[in-house]
Every structure is written in structure tokens, then in C-alpha cells.
């Protein structure tokens, strides 16, 4: 009984630490993004709140919480309240299966450094990312606005399309690792990272992941110059904040997944394991910010053509080739 309680407390502690780190990092990713984008565009970026604008995320948070919470006339109340929660919830929950270290022993208990080692962890992530579509589609629909509805429909179409190539790009990884559990996938990369074994998969995964997170160059669901702000146009205050947090947590989750599937997860020399995972997450996030600062937005037909005519066939061919090579070896 005592060991059960200790295990439960440790689980709660792990969840608290992961949640805290995720939300803090999300706040400072916003800061890093604004600062870097400003530099790419030869501006200063936020520099008023604190040194280098380091207190800017806190100021933003206070602003969002104290803002008036508006609901448009004729909005569907229940769904309008539900949609932002779905976005933030699915993004946060995805981190539950990401391993951030080797099993350690604490108070005479084996503590796995992952919140939940599901044996179908990869499918868990795909399931959650397919549920994230609801937040976007329903948020756009419930706002009772034409622009929001268009943004929601575009978002749903885009996310459904790119989910396919996202899932297909991970099948070779599962074939090589021989498991759907993220812990086992990291362990399978002890000798060589999968980015060197599966470079095509890596490229397909990264492009699809960026399309899933709806960032420039894949941001037509919220294209400012056509739709105002797309599916979250009618949201204000902390409800908009939830969409925003969802997006940046999603960025970190994608960074973590890229690290787990292709960059060896928490493995690395000298530094402790969670630090390595954090470094890899931040690296991927910075690359995504860099791409955002570099590329223009895709047109809708280009977006669909890349998804269905390039990424899906490439992923399928990649699966066949990987299968053939595994059979021969």
C-alpha cells in the first residue's frame, strides 16, 4: 500500500514538472519567436518589459487574463467554450508518452522517466493529433462568422490531409524499431539515429508536422490578409490564449517527437538525459521559427498538391523500399 502511494505521488510530481516546463517553455518560445522574427526583419522586437524584453511573456499573460471575455452574438455557446480547451488539451496530453530519460530508482521504486509508457504510444499521438482537428473546425463554426467558418474548414481539410502523410512517414520507423512504444523507439536508436537511416521519412515527417501545427508556410487556416485571423478570430482574452498556448505546446510536442523518432530522443553524451531532450526540442522549434521567418505562405491548391501528390506517394514508396531492405537483410 505504501509503495502504491509513493508511486502515485511520484506520478503526480512528474506530471506537475512536465506541465510546468511545457507551459514555461511555451511562454518563452513566444518570446524567442518574436525576438527572432524581429531580427530577421531588422527590427528590435519586444524590449520594454525587463532586460531584452524577457518579462514580455508574463506581461502578455496578465493582459490576456484581465481582458474582457467576449462571445459573439449568435455563437453556439457550448461549442464556443469547448473548442479552445480541445486544442490546448490535445496538445498537452500528447506529451504523456514522450520519454525523457532512462529508468531511475527513487525511494526503492523503479521510476520510468515517462508519464505513461503505452505499448501503442505512437498511435496515441496520432489519435490525439486527429482529435485536435475538432478544436479548429468547431471553433471556426461556433463563432458564427464567415471568416472563422472558412478558417475552420480550411484547417480541418489541411489537418486531415497531412495527418495521412504524418502517419505514413512513421511506419518505416516502427518497422525498424519493431515497436509502437516511444520508449522502445528511443532505445532502438542506441547506435545510430534514425535520421541517418530514414532521411526521406524525416523530411516528410517534418513537413507534415509543420502543416499540422498550422504555422507559416502552412497557415492558410488563419491567413491574416484573407480571413482576419481565421478560426480564432472571434476569440478574446484567455480563450484566445488557450489557442495560442495550444499552438506553442504543439510546437514543443513536435520537437519532442522529431527528437524521439529521428534524433535519438534523450540520448546524448555528458549532459543528463532530460537536458538533451530539451536541447533537441528547442533546436527543432528554432528551425520552425526560422522557416516561418523565411518562406511565404502556400496557396490552397499548392498545399493540397504537396500533401496528396508528393508527400503521400513518397511516404508509400519509402515504406515499400524499407520493407524490401528489411526482408533482404
Amino acid at each position: 500500500m505504501a509503495s502504491w502511494i509513493i508511486g502515485f505521488v511520484l506520478l503526480l510530481l512528474k506530471m506537475a514538472v512536465v506541465l510546468g516546463v511545457l507551459l514555461l517553455l511555451a511562454a518563452y518560445l513566444v518570446w524567442a519567436e518574436r525576438k527572432l522574427l524581429a531580427r530577421f526583419q531588422v527590427r528590435y522586437g519586444p524590449n520594454r518589459a525587463g532586460k531584452f524584453g524577457l518579462l514580455q511573456p508574463i506581461a502578455d499573460g496578465i493582459k490576456m487574463i484581465t481582458k474582457e471575455d467576449l462571445m459573439p452574438d449568435g455563437a453556439d455557446r457550448f461549442i464556443f467554450l469547448l473548442a479552445p480547451a480541445v486544442v490546448a488539451f490535445t496538445a498537452l496530453l500528447m506529451f504523456a508518452v514522450v520519454p525523457f530519460g532512462e529508468e531511475i530508482t527513487l525511494f526503492g521504486q523503479n521510476v520510468p522517466m515517462v508519464i505513461s509508457d503505452l505499448n501503442v504510444g505512437l498511435l496515441f499521438i496520432i489519435a490525439l493529433s486527429s482529435l485536435g482537428v475538432y478544436g479548429v473546425a468547431l471553433g471556426g463554426w461556433a463563432s458564427n462568422s464567415k471568416y472563422s467558418l472558412l478558417g475552420g474548414i480550411r484547417g480541418a481539410a489541411q489537418m486531415i490531409s497531412y495527418e495521412l502523410s504524418l502517419g505514413l512517414s512513421l511506419i518505416p520507423i516502427v518497422m525498424i524499431a519493431g515497436s509502437l512504444s516511444l520508449v522502445d523507439i528511443v532505445k532502438a536508436q542506441q547506435n545510430v539515429w534514425f535520421i541517418f537511416v530514414q532521411p526521406v521519412s524525416f523530411v516528410i515527417f517534418l513537413i507534415s508536422a509543420m502543416a499540422e501545427s498550422k504555422r507559416i508556410p502552412f497557415d492558410i487556416p488563419e491567413a491574416e490578409n484573407e480571413l482576419g485571423a481565421g478560426y480564432h478570430m472571434e476569440y478574446s482574452g484567455m480563450r484566445f490564449g488557450l489557442f495560442f498556448i495550444g499552438e506553442y505546446v504543439h510546437m514543443q510536442v513536435l520537437g519532442a517527437l522529431t527528437a524521439v523518432f529521428f534524433l535519438g530522443g534523450w540520448q546524448g553524451p555528458f549532459l543528463p538525459a532530460p537536458v538533451w531532450l530539451l536541447i533537441k526540442i528547442v533546436m527543432v522549434a528554432l528551425v520552425m521559427i526560422w522557416i516561418r521567418g523565411t518562406l511565404p505562405r502556400l496557396r490552397y491548391d499548392q498545399l493540397m498538391a504537396i500533401g496528396w501528390k508528393v508527400l503521400v506517394p513518397a511516404a508509400l514508396i519509402n515504406i515499400v523500399i524499407t520493407g524490401a531492405v528489411i526482408l533482404i537483410i
Partner: peptide
């Protein structure tokens, strides 16, 4: 049956119902 559970979410909750929603919204 964890695999079946997640397939249920991916296929029915995540894909089929999203398409329904899509068509209803359109």
C-alpha cells in the same frame, strides 16, 4: 485491447466524424 481502442479513436472519432462535421459545415 489498447490497439483497438486507439484505432477506434483514430478512425471513427478522428477521421469519420471529422468528415461528417466537414460536410455539415460546408
Amino acid at each position: 485491447a489498447p490497439l483497438l481502442a486507439l484505432l477506434q479513436i483514430i478512425i471513427y472519432a478522428g477521421a469519420v466524424m471529422v468528415l461528417f462535421l466537414f460536410i455539415i459545415m460546408m
